[in-house]
Design a protein around this nucleic acid. Sequence first.
RNA 1: GGCCCCAUCGUCUAGUGGUUUAGGACGUCGGGUUUUCAUCCCGAAAAUCGUGGGUUCGAUCCCCACUGGGGUCACCA
Length: 473
Amino acid sequence: MNEKQIATRMAPSPTGEFHIGGVRTLLYNWALARKNNGRFVIRIEDTDRTRFVEGATERLLAVIRDYGFSWDEGPEVGGPHAPYVQSERLPLYKKHAENLVSTGKAYYCFCTSERLDKMREDQKSRGITSTKYDGHCTSLNTEEVLKNLSSNMPYVIRLKVPAGQEISWNDAVLGNVSFMSDEIDDQILLKSDGFPTYHLGVVVDDHEMEITHVMRGNEWLPSTPKHILLYEAFDWEIPIHGHLPNLKEIGSNQKLSKRHGPVAARGFLDDGYLPEALVNYLMFLGWNPGGEKEIYSLEEFAQEFSLEKIHKTDLVAFDRQKLDWFNTQYIKAKPDHELAQILLTYAPSGTDILLLQKIAPLVKERMKKLSEFSDLTAFFFSKPEVDNTLFSGLQADHVRFAQEAIEQMSDFNTVAIGEVLQKLVLDNSLKARDFFMDLRIAVTGKKVSPPLNESMEILGKAEVLARLVNAQD
RNA sequence: GGCCCCAUCGUCUAGUGGUUUAGGACGUCGGGUUUUCAUCCCGAAAAUCGUGGGUUCGAUCCCCACUGGGGUCACCA
C-alpha cells in the first residue's frame, strides 16, 4: 500500500521546435506512467535565457496535444507541484544550492569566464585530455567568501565532487553503468545570473515533483553520474534512470536532417502524417513487444509497454518509407466522415464537407500523405488544363461517343455510367483501355486519377459533359 | 584524445546454449487481380547473427580482446 506511485515527466526546453525524437521520448515516458496508473508531468526547462525563443513553450504544448497526448500535471493544467516552468521556481534552486554549501557539498566560485577559458587552454597545452575546474575557489576561507559576496562579486555555486568514488546505477535500459568520480568536473549548479544549470534544475524538480522514472535520450548518459552525486549530496532518493537510443538518418550515422524531410514534430503533421501513424511508428524505434502485431493505438501501446523491451542499441534509423506505410494504413482505416473532416485543411477553402465525404473513399488508398490530396483531386474543384498530347489517336471518336451516350442518360450514377460505357465499348468494338484513358484525360486532365466512374458521378452530368465538349476542340 | 555506451537481412526488429535450412515487417524484385494509379493476393532475393579468441559435447545467444559506430567532456540543455 505504501508502494510509491509511478511518475514520469517530459521536460522540454523552449529553445526551438519540438523534435520528432522528443515525441518518441515523451511517448515512452507517457506510456510508463499510463500503464501503471501513474502521473505524467510536463515541465518547461527554460533556464537558458540566451537561447529562449518567444512563443516556443506554447508551440511545444500545442504540438504535444496534437500528437494525442495529455499530461496530468504541468503548464496549462496545473497540479500540486506548480509552477511547472523553471524560471518561475528560481528561489527554490537557490535555496537548495545554498543548502549544499552549508553542508559542505558545494562551494561558491568567483572565477571569471576569462580565467576559466585560460585555465582550460593551459590544461590542454599541458596535454590534459579532459579539462576540469582546477578547484581554485575551494581554497577560499569563509571570510573571503563573505567579503566577495558582500561586495556583490558575481559568483556561481559548484558541486564539490568527491575523489576516487565509483558512481554506478542500474539503468532501466542498459543495465549496470558506472563512472569514476574523478572524471567528473565540479559542476556548476547555480549560474551567476541566479538561474540553475540543467543539472541542478532537473534534480531539484524531479525530486520535488516526485518523479520515479527518468527516461531520456542516451546523450544524457554522461550527465547521470553528476545527477546521482547531487541526489546523494541532498540525501534524496534516486529515481530510476533509463537511456533510450537516439534517432538517426538511414544511410549515415548522423542525426536526422532536414535534407531528408521534416525533423520537427510539427513538420510531420503539416506534411500530412496522421498523429496515430506517427506515434505508432515511433513506438517501434527502440522498443518491440516480440509479437507480430504492428498496429497499435496509443492505449494499446500503453498497456503493452515495458522497460525490459526497450532496445539497448545506441542509434536507430528513422525510416521515412516505413513511416509512409504506417500512414497509409491509418489513412485507409479512417472512416470517410472523419477523413473528410481532416481533409478540409488540404482542400480549397470553403469546400463542402459533404463533397469531401464523397471524395474520401476514392482517394484514401492512394495517398501516402494527406498533402498529396490536393494534387490528386484538383480536377474536382476546377476544370483541368488538358494536355492534348496525352490523348490517343482516337481521342475525338472516343470523347464524342461518350458524350453522346452520357447525354441520353437519365440516372447519372456510378453503376449506370459503368453499364452505359461498357455497352458503348462493346457496340463500337472499342479498345477499352484506350477509350477509358482518353475519357480519363478529358475529365481529369491526367493519366493517373481516382476511379473514373465514381469521379464522374461526383462531378455530375453537366460538368462531365462540359469537359467532354471541351476536349473535342 | 580521456571517459561512457552500443553491435542480427538495406531498415526496424524476433529469437534461443542444441527444436534455426535465424522468424516477421518496411523497402526491393517477380507474378496475379484491375478502365489508370493505388489497394489487395501470391512468390523471390536479402543476415556465414562485426572480427578473433576462449568456456562448452555444442554457440547468434556466456566471457575476453579487437574493430567499428555513437555520445560526452560549457555559467547549453
